[in-house]
Design a protein around this nucleic acid. Sequence first.
DNA 1: GTTCGTGCAAACGGTTTGCAACAAT
DNA 2: ATTGTTGCAAACCGTTTGCACGAAC
Lengths: 128, 128
Amino acid sequence: MLARLAACGIQPTPQRIAVAEYVLNTADHPTADEVWIKVRHRCPTLSRATVYNTLNLFTEKGLLRAHSLKEGVAVFDPHVAPHHHFIDEETGKVFDIPWDGVKVTGEKSLRGLEVREYQVVLRGRKRK
Amino acid sequence: MLARLAACGIQPTPQRIAVAEYVLNTADHPTADEVWIKVRHRCPTLSRATVYNTLNLFTEKGLLRAHSLKEGVAVFDPHVAPHHHFIDEETGKVFDIPWDGVKVTGEKSLRGLEVREYQVVLRGRKRK
DNA sequence: GTTCGTGCAAACGGTTTGCAACAAT
DNA sequence: ATTGTTGCAAACCGTTTGCACGAAC
Protein backbone atom coordinates (compact mmCIF):
# COMPACT_ATOMS: atom_id res chain seq x y z
CA MET A 1 0.00 0.00 0.00
CA LEU A 2 2.84 2.35 0.90
CA ALA A 3 4.45 1.32 -2.34
CA ARG A 4 1.36 2.13 -4.36
CA LEU A 5 1.12 5.59 -2.88
CA ALA A 6 4.81 6.19 -3.38
CA ALA A 7 4.54 5.02 -6.99
CA CYS A 8 2.05 7.82 -7.57
CA GLY A 9 4.16 10.43 -5.89
CA ILE A 10 1.84 10.64 -2.89
CA GLN A 11 3.46 11.29 0.45
CA PRO A 12 2.24 8.59 2.80
CA THR A 13 0.73 10.22 5.85
CA PRO A 14 -1.17 8.17 8.43
CA GLN A 15 -4.47 9.67 7.25
CA ARG A 16 -3.79 8.89 3.61
CA ILE A 17 -2.75 5.35 4.42
CA ALA A 18 -5.89 4.77 6.45
CA VAL A 19 -8.10 6.15 3.68
CA ALA A 20 -6.21 4.16 1.06
CA GLU A 21 -6.52 0.90 2.96
CA TYR A 22 -10.26 1.20 2.93
CA VAL A 23 -11.09 2.91 -0.33
CA LEU A 24 -8.64 1.11 -2.59
CA ASN A 25 -9.92 -2.25 -1.41
CA THR A 26 -13.67 -1.87 -1.39
CA ALA A 27 -16.39 -2.68 -3.89
CA ASP A 28 -18.84 -0.44 -2.00
CA HIS A 29 -18.63 2.66 -4.19
CA PRO A 30 -18.64 4.84 -1.09
CA THR A 31 -19.34 8.55 -0.97
CA ALA A 32 -16.79 10.81 0.69
CA ASP A 33 -18.81 10.88 3.87
CA GLU A 34 -19.09 7.11 3.93
CA VAL A 35 -15.32 6.91 3.66
CA TRP A 36 -15.02 9.31 6.56
CA ILE A 37 -17.41 7.28 8.71
CA LYS A 38 -15.64 4.01 7.91
CA VAL A 39 -12.10 5.19 8.35
CA ARG A 40 -12.63 7.39 11.38
CA HIS A 41 -12.65 4.32 13.61
CA ARG A 42 -9.09 3.48 12.76
CA CYS A 43 -7.86 7.04 12.53
CA PRO A 44 -9.84 9.17 14.97
CA THR A 45 -8.15 12.44 14.09
CA LEU A 46 -9.25 12.17 10.50
CA SER A 47 -11.24 15.19 9.41
CA ARG A 48 -13.79 15.45 6.66
CA ALA A 49 -11.65 17.99 4.81
CA THR A 50 -8.74 15.58 4.73
CA VAL A 51 -11.00 12.85 3.38
CA TYR A 52 -12.14 15.09 0.54
CA ASN A 53 -8.62 16.27 -0.17
CA THR A 54 -7.31 12.73 -0.12
CA LEU A 55 -10.03 11.33 -2.37
CA ASN A 56 -9.47 14.13 -4.86
CA LEU A 57 -5.74 13.54 -4.75
CA PHE A 58 -6.17 9.81 -5.33
CA THR A 59 -8.52 10.58 -8.20
CA GLU A 60 -6.04 12.98 -9.81
CA LYS A 61 -3.32 10.36 -9.49
CA GLY A 62 -5.46 7.71 -11.10
CA LEU A 63 -5.91 5.47 -8.08
CA LEU A 64 -9.64 6.15 -8.00
CA ARG A 65 -12.39 7.23 -10.30
CA ALA A 66 -15.26 9.45 -9.24
CA HIS A 67 -18.66 8.73 -10.74
CA SER A 68 -21.89 10.73 -10.65
CA LEU A 69 -24.23 7.82 -10.51
CA LYS A 70 -26.47 9.13 -7.75
CA GLU A 71 -28.12 12.52 -7.59
CA GLY A 72 -26.05 15.05 -5.78
CA VAL A 73 -23.17 12.88 -4.57
CA ALA A 74 -19.96 11.57 -6.01
CA VAL A 75 -19.10 7.94 -5.44
CA PHE A 76 -15.55 6.65 -5.57
CA ASP A 77 -14.42 3.47 -7.23
CA PRO A 78 -10.95 1.91 -7.04
CA HIS A 79 -11.80 -0.15 -10.08
CA VAL A 80 -10.30 2.20 -12.65
CA ALA A 81 -10.33 -0.09 -15.67
CA PRO A 82 -13.33 0.29 -18.00
CA HIS A 83 -16.46 -1.40 -16.70
CA HIS A 84 -20.16 -0.82 -16.32
CA HIS A 85 -22.41 -0.09 -13.36
CA PHE A 86 -25.66 -1.46 -12.03
CA ILE A 87 -27.64 0.59 -9.52
CA ASP A 88 -30.15 -1.15 -7.29
CA GLU A 89 -33.16 1.14 -7.32
CA GLU A 90 -34.35 -0.07 -3.94
CA THR A 91 -31.18 0.36 -1.96
CA GLY A 92 -29.22 2.79 -4.12
CA LYS A 93 -26.24 0.46 -3.97
CA VAL A 94 -23.88 0.45 -6.92
CA PHE A 95 -22.39 -2.72 -8.35
CA ASP A 96 -19.67 -3.18 -10.89
CA ILE A 97 -20.48 -5.03 -14.08
CA PRO A 98 -17.39 -6.44 -15.78
CA TRP A 99 -16.54 -4.99 -19.15
CA ASP A 100 -17.57 -8.20 -20.87
CA GLY A 101 -20.81 -8.48 -18.93
CA VAL A 102 -22.59 -6.51 -21.62
CA LYS A 103 -21.48 -5.68 -25.12
CA VAL A 104 -21.83 -2.30 -26.79
CA THR A 105 -21.61 -2.00 -30.56
CA GLY A 106 -21.99 0.82 -33.01
CA GLU A 107 -20.32 3.47 -30.90
CA LYS A 108 -17.63 3.90 -33.53
CA SER A 109 -20.19 4.80 -36.17
CA LEU A 110 -21.53 7.86 -34.40
CA ARG A 111 -20.90 10.63 -36.87
CA GLY A 112 -19.08 13.68 -35.60
CA LEU A 113 -18.31 12.19 -32.21
CA GLU A 114 -14.88 11.05 -31.07
CA VAL A 115 -15.83 8.64 -28.32
CA ARG A 116 -13.01 8.38 -25.82
CA GLU A 117 -14.79 6.19 -23.30
CA TYR A 118 -18.21 4.91 -22.46
CA GLN A 119 -20.03 2.85 -19.93
CA VAL A 120 -23.44 1.30 -19.59
CA VAL A 121 -25.43 2.42 -16.57
CA LEU A 122 -28.10 -0.12 -15.68
CA ARG A 123 -30.83 0.29 -13.11
CA GLY A 124 -33.16 -2.25 -11.63
CA ARG A 125 -33.52 -4.67 -8.80
CA LYS A 126 -30.97 -7.05 -7.45
CA ARG A 127 -32.38 -10.41 -6.51
CA LYS A 128 -31.41 -11.69 -3.12
CA MET B 1 -48.70 23.35 -24.49
CA LEU B 2 -51.63 24.21 -22.26
CA ALA B 3 -53.19 20.94 -23.35
CA ARG B 4 -50.08 18.97 -22.40
CA LEU B 5 -49.99 20.48 -18.94
CA ALA B 6 -53.69 19.94 -18.48
CA ALA B 7 -53.34 16.33 -19.61
CA CYS B 8 -50.92 15.78 -16.73
CA GLY B 9 -53.15 17.46 -14.19
CA ILE B 10 -50.87 20.48 -13.93
CA GLN B 11 -52.55 23.81 -13.34
CA PRO B 12 -51.25 26.16 -16.01
CA THR B 13 -49.84 29.23 -14.36
CA PRO B 14 -47.90 31.83 -16.35
CA GLN B 15 -44.65 30.68 -14.72
CA ARG B 16 -45.24 27.03 -15.50
CA ILE B 17 -46.20 27.82 -19.08
CA ALA B 18 -43.06 29.89 -19.57
CA VAL B 19 -40.87 27.14 -18.11
CA ALA B 20 -42.66 24.50 -20.16
CA GLU B 21 -42.28 26.39 -23.40
CA TYR B 22 -38.54 26.40 -22.98
CA VAL B 23 -37.71 23.17 -21.22
CA LEU B 24 -40.08 20.87 -23.09
CA ASN B 25 -38.73 22.08 -26.43
CA THR B 26 -34.99 22.15 -25.92
CA ALA B 27 -32.22 19.69 -26.64
CA ASP B 28 -29.87 21.62 -24.34
CA HIS B 29 -30.15 19.42 -21.24
CA PRO B 30 -30.25 22.52 -19.05
CA THR B 31 -29.67 22.65 -15.32
CA ALA B 32 -32.31 24.26 -13.15
CA ASP B 33 -30.32 27.48 -13.02
CA GLU B 34 -29.94 27.54 -16.77
CA VAL B 35 -33.68 27.21 -17.10
CA TRP B 36 -34.09 30.12 -14.70
CA ILE B 37 -31.69 32.31 -16.68
CA LYS B 38 -33.31 31.47 -20.01
CA VAL B 39 -36.91 31.87 -18.94
CA ARG B 40 -36.49 34.91 -16.73
CA HIS B 41 -36.37 37.12 -19.82
CA ARG B 42 -39.90 36.22 -20.78
CA CYS B 43 -41.23 36.00 -17.25
CA PRO B 44 -39.32 38.48 -15.06
CA THR B 45 -41.11 37.61 -11.84
CA LEU B 46 -39.96 33.99 -12.06
CA SER B 47 -38.06 32.93 -8.97
CA ARG B 48 -35.49 30.21 -8.62
CA ALA B 49 -37.71 28.34 -6.16
CA THR B 50 -40.53 28.21 -8.65
CA VAL B 51 -38.18 26.88 -11.31
CA TYR B 52 -37.07 24.06 -9.02
CA ASN B 53 -40.64 23.33 -7.96
CA THR B 54 -41.83 23.35 -11.54
CA LEU B 55 -39.05 21.12 -12.84
CA ASN B 56 -39.67 18.64 -10.05
CA LEU B 57 -43.38 18.69 -10.78
CA PHE B 58 -42.81 18.13 -14.47
CA THR B 59 -40.45 15.28 -13.64
CA GLU B 60 -42.99 13.64 -11.32
CA LYS B 61 -45.61 13.92 -14.01
CA GLY B 62 -43.37 12.33 -16.60
CA LEU B 63 -42.88 15.36 -18.83
CA LEU B 64 -39.18 15.50 -18.03
CA ARG B 65 -36.44 13.22 -16.86
CA ALA B 66 -33.66 14.32 -14.55
CA HIS B 67 -30.21 12.87 -15.16
CA SER B 68 -27.03 13.02 -13.08
CA LEU B 69 -24.60 13.22 -15.93
CA LYS B 70 -22.46 16.01 -14.55
CA GLU B 71 -20.91 16.18 -11.12
CA GLY B 72 -23.09 17.93 -8.63
CA VAL B 73 -25.93 19.11 -10.88
CA ALA B 74 -29.07 17.62 -12.29
CA VAL B 75 -29.84 18.19 -15.95
CA PHE B 76 -33.34 17.99 -17.34
CA ASP B 77 -34.32 16.32 -20.55
CA PRO B 78 -37.74 16.46 -22.21
CA HIS B 79 -36.77 13.43 -24.25
CA VAL B 80 -38.31 10.84 -21.94
CA ALA B 81 -38.14 7.81 -24.23
CA PRO B 82 -35.09 5.55 -23.75
CA HIS B 83 -31.96 6.92 -25.36
CA HIS B 84 -28.27 7.37 -24.69
CA HIS B 85 -26.10 10.38 -23.90
CA PHE B 86 -22.86 11.77 -25.17
CA ILE B 87 -20.98 14.31 -23.08
CA ASP B 88 -18.48 16.60 -24.75
CA GLU B 89 -15.53 16.61 -22.37
CA GLU B 90 -14.37 20.04 -23.55
CA THR B 91 -17.59 21.94 -23.19
CA GLY B 92 -19.56 19.73 -20.84
CA LYS B 93 -22.49 19.83 -23.23
CA VAL B 94 -24.78 16.82 -23.31
CA PHE B 95 -26.15 15.38 -26.53
CA ASP B 96 -28.83 12.78 -27.06
CA ILE B 97 -27.89 9.61 -28.88
CA PRO B 98 -30.89 7.85 -30.38
CA TRP B 99 -31.71 4.46 -28.95
CA ASP B 100 -30.57 2.77 -32.14
CA GLY B 101 -27.35 4.78 -32.34
CA VAL B 102 -25.58 2.12 -30.33
CA LYS B 103 -26.61 -1.40 -29.53
CA VAL B 104 -26.31 -3.08 -26.13
CA THR B 105 -26.45 -6.84 -25.85
CA GLY B 106 -26.09 -9.28 -23.02
CA GLU B 107 -27.87 -7.21 -20.39
CA LYS B 108 -30.52 -9.91 -20.05
CA SER B 109 -27.90 -12.49 -19.11
CA LEU B 110 -26.67 -10.71 -16.00
CA ARG B 111 -27.30 -13.21 -13.25
CA GLY B 112 -29.19 -11.97 -10.23
CA LEU B 113 -30.03 -8.60 -11.72
CA GLU B 114 -33.45 -7.55 -12.94
CA VAL B 115 -32.53 -4.76 -15.32
CA ARG B 116 -35.40 -2.31 -15.63
CA GLU B 117 -33.64 0.24 -17.78
CA TYR B 118 -30.22 1.15 -18.98
CA GLN B 119 -28.41 3.73 -21.02
CA VAL B 120 -24.98 4.15 -22.48
CA VAL B 121 -23.08 7.23 -21.32
CA LEU B 122 -20.37 8.17 -23.78
CA ARG B 123 -17.71 10.79 -23.31
CA GLY B 124 -15.35 12.33 -25.79
CA ARG B 125 -14.98 15.19 -28.18
CA LYS B 126 -17.51 16.47 -30.63
CA ARG B 127 -16.01 17.43 -33.95
CA LYS B 128 -17.02 20.82 -35.26
C1' DG C 1 -62.70 31.63 2.46
C1' DT C 2 -60.21 27.72 1.24
C1' DT C 3 -56.96 25.99 -1.90
C1' DC C 4 -53.08 26.29 -4.54
C1' DG C 5 -48.98 28.62 -6.46
C1' DT C 6 -45.61 32.07 -5.90
C1' DG C 7 -41.46 34.82 -4.15
C1' DC C 8 -38.35 35.53 -0.71
C1' DA C 9 -35.14 34.17 2.47
C1' DA C 10 -33.46 30.84 5.31
C1' DA C 11 -31.97 26.23 5.75
C1' DC C 12 -29.85 22.25 4.04
C1' DG C 13 -26.26 18.76 2.43
C1' DG C 14 -22.23 17.86 -0.17
C1' DT C 15 -17.94 19.90 -1.21
C1' DT C 16 -14.17 23.32 -1.29
C1' DT C 17 -11.24 26.69 0.68
C1' DG C 18 -8.54 29.95 3.88
C1' DC C 19 -5.82 29.73 7.51
C1' DA C 20 -3.10 28.72 11.50
C1' DA C 21 -0.67 24.89 13.58
C1' DC C 22 2.39 21.36 12.72
C1' DA C 23 5.39 17.70 10.72
C1' DA C 24 9.18 16.45 7.79
C1' DT C 25 12.90 17.47 5.21
C1' DA D 1 13.54 27.85 6.70
C1' DT D 2 10.93 25.79 3.38
C1' DT D 3 7.63 22.71 1.88
C1' DG D 4 3.69 20.09 2.34
C1' DT D 5 -0.34 18.15 5.30
C1' DT D 6 -3.70 18.54 8.68
C1' DG D 7 -7.99 20.16 11.32
C1' DC D 8 -11.18 23.51 11.96
C1' DA D 9 -14.44 26.66 10.53
C1' DA D 10 -16.28 29.34 7.19
C1' DA D 11 -17.64 29.72 2.58
C1' DC D 12 -19.73 27.91 -1.38
C1' DC D 13 -23.12 25.99 -4.60
C1' DG D 14 -27.11 23.41 -5.95
C1' DT D 15 -31.35 22.40 -4.01
C1' DT D 16 -35.27 22.27 -0.70
C1' DT D 17 -38.28 24.25 2.56
C1' DG D 18 -41.08 27.49 5.68
C1' DC D 19 -43.86 31.09 5.43
C1' DA D 20 -46.68 34.98 4.25
C1' DC D 21 -48.83 37.07 0.29
C1' DG D 22 -51.78 36.72 -3.66
C1' DA D 23 -54.74 34.68 -7.35
C1' DA D 24 -58.52 31.52 -8.57
C1' DC D 25 -62.32 28.75 -7.76
